[in-house]
Design a binder for these strands. Structure first.
Lengths: 243, 243
DNA sequence: CGCTGGCATGTGGTATGCCAAAAACTTTCC
DNA sequence: GGAAAGTTTTTGGCATACCACATGCCAGCG
């Protein structure tokens, strides 16, 4: 985002202090295609069909109304992200991750989140930490998470992302978001599971308490163990999702 | 050119065992360009000059002897990696990271490495762990690391990469390697510093000992603290490198 | 009937050319 | 002289054409 500060001096100019909001960079077709394809890939349920999902450059360029060039550049980017794999003269296939790959990603996520928790105990403001409770304010003894799985799942995701953000570490935020995107296809099927949901909420509250208490080691441990628990859960019960 | 490997049984045929050496996949220009540019970027000392380093598509395509198309695709990939930033009608600039970005990356690295250490204590073989000592076998009381900074720095890097690899987690390995590539420009100037080198070796040995003892918590803590120590060091003493 | 080899077709890979916007450079005019 | 206006050059963005190779279909030979 290299916002450009006034380079040359704009000589003798009133330079009215009107809020000139730097014209929208007008994203290129390449980036638009990237966003569109990424969203499409994340939206589709890759794991429902047994045969690999293939993409076709020409078909995509026609559907999006642009030439193949920006499409190819977008594909190249998606391939860097690991969402897609192109095989010369064969086609472009949407990558299907194995169970162990997903588990592996969740472990990395756990590592990053526990570091975020660690940092939060030393830098975040109390009010921001406490605000994390709001994500679950709609749930309680009279309204159990396991009875509103979809809704709880969204709150869950929002909580984790907010947590990481509190670390004020762009790297942790970005890396975690990337990992979550890959795991997302499973999110609906794992985090949302009733049997895990029951233990999830208390663990979240436990993390928040440790953060509020500024107990670095405990917060780190709880954050780590919570997400590692998800990894273990997927490892144990996720087989059915992979056939 | 259509060499065909024996697909079906080739009935009644002598099928002389001529050494057919499976034709090389012959990477595309796009990937060759990506590798070449990445190496070039990592090799150059981006932080030595004050003005930003710019790349030119046409110049590159001429230098590499290919058209602009594969170059542009390679650039798109490098941009995803965060090595480069292209600004429409301005140019492509090699990204210069700030001190706080580097520190942030090192923290993420610490998180991943401590998770790797955790996993190693439960899965790695003893001989593989012990083998980690070999990276430092050339150093000791009679041959101090701080007297051979360059050499020790290389051993240091190799050690960390080998450590992560022992986790047998592709995700941890890949993420860490990516982070290290970004930090590398600084490695020579930070990890190599004499004052840190002195404490580095004992810490490494301490990590190895904890791994051998299968002490999960301790190994995790030592791995984390060691790398966080580097982050703190850069944060404290790295200012001079950024002007 | 089955296997072989050629040909049509599909798909990604690469080369080129043109465009618009920004920057660099020139000219013009007070 | 110097600054504004005009012109050229530079640079990334995009479209298009063509290429090479992988596949699959199918005629033709044995």
């Amino acid at each position: 985002m290299s916002l450009r500060k006034p380079t040359k001096a704009l000589p003798n100019m009133a330079e009215a202090d009107i809020a000139i909001v730097r014209i929208a960079p007008e994203s290129s077709f390449k980036n638009k295609a990237y966003d569109a394809l990424k969203e499409a890939i994340l939206k589709m349920d890759i794991y429902s069909t047994p045969e690999p999902v293939m993409l076709d450059e020409r078909a995509l360029s026609e559907r999006l109304g642009v030439s193949r060039t920006p499409i190819r550049e977008a594909i190249a980017m998606l391939e860097q992200d690991g969402f897609v794999k192109t095989v010369p003269r064969r086609g472009i296939m949407v990558v299907r991750r194995t169970k162990s790959e997903i588990v592996d990603m969740i472990r990395a996520w756990a590592a990053l989140e526990s570091m975020a928790a660690r940092l939060i105990t030393t830098t975040a403001r109390k009010k921001d930490i406490t605000a994390l409770r709001d994500f679950f304010k709609d749930f309680g003894k009279d309204r159990l998470p396991q009875d509103h799985v979809e809704e709880y799942s969204r709150a869950n995701i929002a909580f984790h992302q907010a947590l990481i953000s509190l670390s004020e570490s762009p790297v942790l935020v970005d890396l975690t978001n990337d990992l979550l995107l890959h795991v997302r296809g499973y999110r609906q099927l794992t985090i949302g599971r009733k049997d895990r949901t029951a233990t999830s909420l208390p663990e979240h509250l436990g993390i928040i308490e440790a953060l509020e208490a500024r107990d670095t080691e405990l917060a780190e441990k709880r954050a780590r163990d919570h997400t590692l628990g998800l990894a273990a859960y997927v490892e144990a019960h996720g087989q059915e999702l992979f056939g």
